Computed example of a mutant assay.
Amino acid sequence: MRPAFGFLAAFGLALTATAASASEDIPDKYPQSVLYNKPVEVIPHVWTAIGATAPPTYENAGHNNNLSFLVTGDGVVVINSGASFRLAEALHAEIRKVTDQPVRLVINENGQGHAMLGNNYWIAQGVPVLAHADAAAEFEDDAGQALAALQNYARENAEGTEPMGPTETFEDSREITMGAMRIEVLHLGPAHSPGDTQVWLPDLGLMIAGDIAFHERMPPIFEGTCTACWIDTWDTALVPLAPVHVIPGHGHPTNMAQVARYTRDYLLHLRGVVGAYLDEGGDLAGSYYLDQSAYAHLDTFEELATRNAGVVFAEMEFE
């Protein structure tokens, strides 16, 4: 039976009441550390350092995704190495404040820089790093560009970072039992980017969803993203697991209804307006101005909405 932890419910209500806490206008919420936010315990033994919902900047040092860790009783499992050596090092310092258990595994939730560029810190500690094979391949292709971007915006906070891929890869899933936790490392199917990875704690009803799920910032849609596949993965693979608690890739811990509202429903909305526009004979230039105003309150709307529309237009034009 899954426990219904009152703390997360209260936590979520408090966050809903103070939406400004998720704002991309806040440059840094934890000035004592290179981390944007001090880690919080979401449910017992599951912690996350909630990143900024803004693009990466010097002020947030690239900590604009969630860096989570599990205290199992027989070691710690970290989800995401962070965007740099220094972010990984800072997260490790916070872990040591919580427990003297050693970090035994790091899991990269995708192949983007903010999930993998801190790998070299953990590898230097002798910690294995696990990622999906497709995410590892994406990082190998893009690591140089990701490092250059980090050095450009983070400046001295990029020091020590050397791109290193994972030490281990998986294809479909990996089940791990460590201490009191049963951990399922899953690739549910095509979604936001190659090798999107979810960490499922079935006995706790908690999903560390990664970038399959968004709710406080607009989902970015990349060239090559199959939005129809993303919706299908959501409906056929994520929903049947019925998570009670969700830690998304970006933003505060929440529940399935909230991430469905701002991920699946957003994708359906955008595909709907693009599809209607295509039926009217519309062209790419006009697609950028399609109505997405229902989502204008989301962080990164200004940066992503028009680009998302153009990418989905290109995807659907030949469906």
Rank of each mutant, 00 (worst) to 15 (best):
P3Y: 05
A4L: 06
A10N: 15
A10F: 13
F11R: 14
F11S: 01
G12Q: 12
G12V: 14
L13K: 14
L13F: 13
L13E: 10
L15K: 11
A17C: 08
A19K: 04
A19L: 12
A22T: 02
D25G: 11
I26G: 02
P27R: 11
K29I: 09
P31S: 13
Q32A: 15
Y36V: 03
E41T: 09
I43K: 01
I43M: 08
P44T: 06
A49S: 14
T53G: 10
P55T: 10
Y58K: 07
E59Y: 15
G62R: 07
N66D: 13
G73D: 03
D74N: 15
V77P: 00
V78A: 09
A83N: 10
A83K: 11
R86K: 15
R86V: 07
E89D: 13
E89L: 09
A90T: 05
A90C: 14
R96P: 04
K97A: 10
T99E: 06
T99W: 06
D100G: 11
L105E: 01
N108F: 09
E109F: 10
G113F: 01
G113Q: 00
M116G: 11
L117N: 06
L117H: 05
N119V: 08
A124Y: 04
P128F: 04
P128V: 05
P128H: 04
D134T: 07
E138G: 07
D141N: 14
A143F: 05
A146D: 08
N152G: 11
A158Q: 02
T161Y: 03
E162F: 09
P163D: 05
T167A: 09
F170A: 05
S173F: 13
E175I: 08
E175G: 00
I176W: 00
I176K: 00
M178T: 04
G179H: 07
G179L: 03
M181R: 03
E184N: 11
P190M: 02
G195M: 01
L201G: 00
L201D: 00
G205A: 02
L206A: 04
D211W: 04
I221F: 11
F222N: 15
T227S: 13
A228W: 04
D232N: 15
D232M: 07
T233W: 03
T236S: 15
L238Q: 02
P240R: 10
V246D: 00
P248I: 13
P248M: 14
H252S: 13
P253W: 08
A260Q: 08
R261K: 15
R261D: 12
R261Q: 15
Y262S: 03
L267I: 13
L268Q: 14
H269I: 06
H269L: 10
L270S: 13
G272I: 05
G272T: 04
V273E: 01
A276H: 06
D279C: 11
D283P: 02
G286A: 07
S287G: 04
S293T: 10
F301T: 02
T306A: 15
T306R: 14
A309G: 02
V311Q: 02
V311H: 04
V312I: 14
